[in-house]
Design a binder for these strands. Structure first.
Length: 875
DNA sequence: CGACTCACG
DNA sequence: ACGTACGTGAGTCGT
């Protein structure tokens, strides 16, 4: 017999929480759904994690409760439930019924009391009990057997109030939560408490006196103070408040534990309710609904010899690969579709077919691809160079909405309402069960993908035109895909023996430091485990705890730096961390990625991933090779040109994001600074600190630089204070001064947030979009985050637009000049090329020229460059 | 598989 | 009062 576990949900409180935490969604019939949606996502998560055997959702019944008998104003002054929420309760009840969860309400009692009563009786029966609510009042019920979960932020972020968590957070026992409420009151329930006593004071008093009653028994001994007067004057009120806050664990409920058995959801019913509420995302990823959805039948043929008449002037082409390592993996076959005939060409047939190769390489034949970069890069390994790409599903989806995720054609197709294609997971399975299916199944799957791409082209192109994004897609992202494919295929040469030598040195150093650390700690432990390290530092060595994480002590570098003076071990740990990172990520990790045939690494640039329009780089990530610290920077010595007598040539934009900001805000002062070619951080320091240029100290410049970063990130006083290690107030003053000096920036920031609220999205210089669904959220955190994003994305995204345009221009220019030099990497504001020495001179001329003229702004763009025998020397 | 840490722009 | 800087990817630990 498995152990009984009772899950008790506070229906009203969770519905309220969800309603205010999420933006106002509506279903197709115009009914608001956000509270039910939030409740559902929370419920799904909790069911998954807790697997209860018994369940109940408790609701409040009616307006008056037994608490009103002793205090009429209880919950007085509360805003009426908004109609947008009221209308959702019938659906919520329907949903709970579909899950086959019991619900219960009781005249004169609140949901809290039902929960308290059942929790205590279940505890006596030795059940494990979990209570979920949005209301911290329930935490008074916590015990060894009873866990109280309180939802935070969204709805799926849940804080677990165990007695030890409460002890950590407040220094109180669960029972004392009631006393705390009694003293501090609760505005939302209109519980008065003692005026002038807040959380801090209440906790302090309870630590000394234990309970409200005890406090008043001993109050005569308390030394005279304002606070004592207040306590004395409000004794009655404090005791009443405590009584009001106390959950009744002996309510006259007519339901017993035996009635609460939870058999699991009626899946069909749940899906029906979801359908009614238009919970599309839930329906799609639902485990109830088998992922193998019905698809309409299609006809398809497996081709064993490609004849020219099969190949039309326009066709969707889908290159099916074994996995996403397309620089190495097997190609399974090619799907072709023109909406009428759907074909599958197994790759052994395709690779030998001269007609197919000629057709693929014929630029006048239009090809529609799901992911043109992957297809081109994979096929070119077999000497086939796809030309005439005129549609790319992945890129067009990404431009329409960068939040749309996934390279799986089925996932993308579903986003746009096309369902006649299965997901890869359904066809291949996942994890250990992964396998290539029979040729018939594979052929149909690939043919369906091609048909999906064919069918979706007009849909996507219409959306792009509607949003005035067709140019961005067709003239920027699409041609860029081919360039990135070439860069990836070209790869960059890595000198393995350089890495090996560094690795040996690092390992030797690490052994020494490790020994030192164990000695200072007095024992051996795993330094790589933050958990074990935390125990050593903060328990054994009793260093002060500066910051905590969800799961324990923070041992992050900024924390350790503050502890350096406290104990010698700290600096050793910092050094160990630094070297261990270099060794595991950049020596060992990078070495694994080097292809033995050519001694090169071939990264993958993700072109449809980031929300801002930047690229990202994986397998390996070549956009985060160390540079800031010298020890790490040496890693760059291992990156070399692929030919004798060549160099690596690097060119980077100077302050591109601040220049973009100057352009978009049109702030006179900022524009002027750039036009005059000033050092922007020094100029900022002059304005913020009101000093002439020659009186700007390095600290002032450093602070100004941090402010400039802050501005770009969507500033907050707190963030800046953390970064500069100053008080929030000082940080706030810096920001105020900055905004006074650059009023255009302030206006721009205000406007962009307003604009985002109005339209629901922000845009970049080339009209890239990012939707911000949380921008009008009533949840402070979500809304603030969206506001910062609204400020940052146009800046970061426009900078991405500019360098992407520069890459296209650069590719064309290198070709036009007939150069051998090649683009190898892009690192957000920097391009890395390799070049024969004799071309250096011309690159010095054309690279800055191309980059600086990629897009014309209200301020000049400035490019610095350098070259050398390794990436390290090209600095 | 999530949390933490740390590398980059 | 709320709790944070923006955007990424990889290695490691521990459930």
């Amino acid at each position: 017999m498995t152990k009984e576990k009772l899950l008790l949900l506070d229906g009203n409180s969770l519905a309220y929480r969800a309603f205010f935490a999420l933006p106002l969604l509506t279903n197709e019939g115009g009914i608001h759904t956000n509270a039910v949606y939030g409740f559902t996502t929370m419920l799904q998560k909790i069911l998954e994690e807790e697997k209860p055997t018994k369940m109940l959702v408790a609701f409040d019944a009616g307006k008056t409760t037994f608490r009103h008998e002793s205090f009429q104003e209880y919950k007085g002054g509360r805003q009426k439930t908004p109609p947008e929420l009221s209308e959702q309760f019938p659906y919520l009840r329907k949903l709970i019924d579909a899950y086959q969860i019991k619900r219960y309400e009781l005249e004169m009692y609140e949901a809290d009391d039902i929960i308290g009563t059942l929790a205590k009786s279940a505890e006596k029966e030795d059940f494990d009990v979990v209570i979920v609510s949005g209301d911290k009042d329930l935490t008074q019920l916590a015990s060894n057997r009873i866990n109280v979960y309180i939802t935070r932020k969204g709805m799926t972020d849940i804080e677990h109030y165990t007695p030890s968590h409460i002890e950590e957070k407040y220094g109180l026992t669960p029972n004392q939560i009631i006393d705390m409420k009694g003293l501090m009151g609760d505005t939302s329930d209109n519980i008065p408490g003692v005026p002038g006593v807040g959380e801090k004071t209440a906790i302090k008093l309870l630590k000394e006196y234990g309970t409200v009653e005890n406090l008043y028994d001993q109050i005569e001994g308390m030394k005279a103070s304002k606070m004592k007067e207040k306590l004395v004057a409000n004794e009655e009120q404090a005791k009443l408040s405590k009584q009001l806050a106390t959950i009744n664990t002996d309510a006259p409920i007519t339901i017993t534990l035996n009635d609460l058995a939870y058999p699991g959801p009626n899946e069909e019913e749940v899906l029906n309710v979801w359908q009614e509420l238009s919970f599309k995302s839930l329906i799609e990823k639902s485990e109830f609904q088998s992922q193998v959805h019905e698809t309409k039948e299609i006809s398809f043929s497996i081709i064993d010899e490609v004849s020219t008449d099969l190949l039309k002037d326009q066709m969707a082409v889908h290159v099916e690969l074994e996995n996403d390592h397309y620089h190495t993996c097997k190609v399974l076959g090619i799907g072709l579709s023109n909406g009428e005939s759907n074909l599958f060409v197994p790759f052994d047939v395709a690779a030998k077919s001269e007609p197919l190769r000629l057709w693929l390489e014929d630029a006048t034949k239009e090809k529609y691809l799901s992911d043109s970069k992957v297809a081109q890069a994979a096929i070119q390994r077999y000497g086939i160079f796809i030309e005439g790409v005129s549609f790319d599903l992945l890129l067009s989806s990404y431009i329409v909405n960068p939040a749309i995720s996934g390279e799986d054609v089925a996932v993308l197709a579903n986003e746009f309402g096309y369902r006649d294609v299965q997901s890869n997971e359904v066809i291949y399975g996942k994890g250990a069960k992964w396998a290539v299916p029979s040729i018939e199944v594979l052929a149909e799957h690939v043919a369906r993908k091609a048909l999906a791409v064919w069918t979706l082209k007009p849909t996507l192109e219409d959306k792009l035109s509607e949003n005035e994004q067709y140019n961005l897609y067709k003239e920027l992202e699409l041609p860029l895909a081919s360039i990135l494919g070439k860069m990836e295929s070209e790869g960059i040469r890595v000198n393995i023996s350089t890495l090996e030598k560094m690795g040996q040195e690092l390992t030797e150093k690490l052994v020494v430091i490790e020994k030192e650390i164990y000695e200072l700690a007095g024992e051996k432990f795993n330094i790589n485990s933050p958990k074990q390290l935390g125990v050593i530092l903060f328990e054994k060595l009793e260093l002060p705890v500066i910051k905590k994480t969800k799961t324990g002590y923070s041992t992050a570098a900024d924390v350790l730096e503050k502890l350096e003076s406290e104990h010698d071990i700290v600096k050793h740990i910092l050094l160990y961390r630094q070297l261990a990172k270099l060794n595991s990520t950049y020596i060992e990790g990078l070495t694994k990625e080097v292809h033995p045939e050519d001694s090169k690494v071939h990264t993958t640039f993700q072109q449809a991933l980031t929300s801002t329009g930047r690229l990202s780089s994986t397998n390996p990530n070549l956009q985060n090779i160390p540079i800031r610290l010298e020890e790490g920077r040496k890693i760059r010595q291992a990156f070399v040109p692929s030919h004798q007598g060549w160099v690596l040539f690097s060119a980077d934009y100077s302050q591109i994001e601040l220049r973009v900001l100057a352009h978009m805000s049109n702030d006179e002062n900022l524009v002027d600074a750039f036009k005059q070619g000033m050092d922007i951080h020094t100029r900022t320091a002059m304005d913020v600190f009101h000093v002439p240029a020659d009186e700007v100290t390095s600290d002032m410049r450093r602070a100004a630089k941090a402010v400039n970063f802050g501005i770009v990130y969507g500033i907050s006083d707190y963030g800046l204070s953390q970064n500069l290690n100053i008080t929030r107030k000082e940080a706030g003053q810096f920001i105020d001064k900055y905004l006074q000096s650059f009023p255009g920036v302030k206006e721009y920031m205000d406007t962009i947030v307003q604009d985002a609220k109005l339209k629901g999205f922000v845009t970049t210089i080339l009209n890239r979009r990012r939707y911000l669904p949380d921008i009008s959220s009533s949840n402070f955190n979500l809304r603030s985050f969206a506001e910062r994003t609204a400020m940052n994305t146009p800046i970061q995204g426009s900078a991405a637009d500019i360098i992407k345009k520069a890459m296209i221009d650069m590719d064309a220019r290198l070709k036009k000049e007939g150069l051998k030099s090649k683009l190898l990497l892009q690192v957000h504001d920097e391009l890395i090329l390799e070049a024969p020495k004799e071309e250096i001179e011309i690159l010095e001329r054309i690279v800055p020229e191309v980059m600086e003229n990629a897009i014309e702004l209200a301020v000049p763009l400035k490019v610095d460059f350098s070259y050398g025998d390794t990436w390290y020397e090209a600095k």
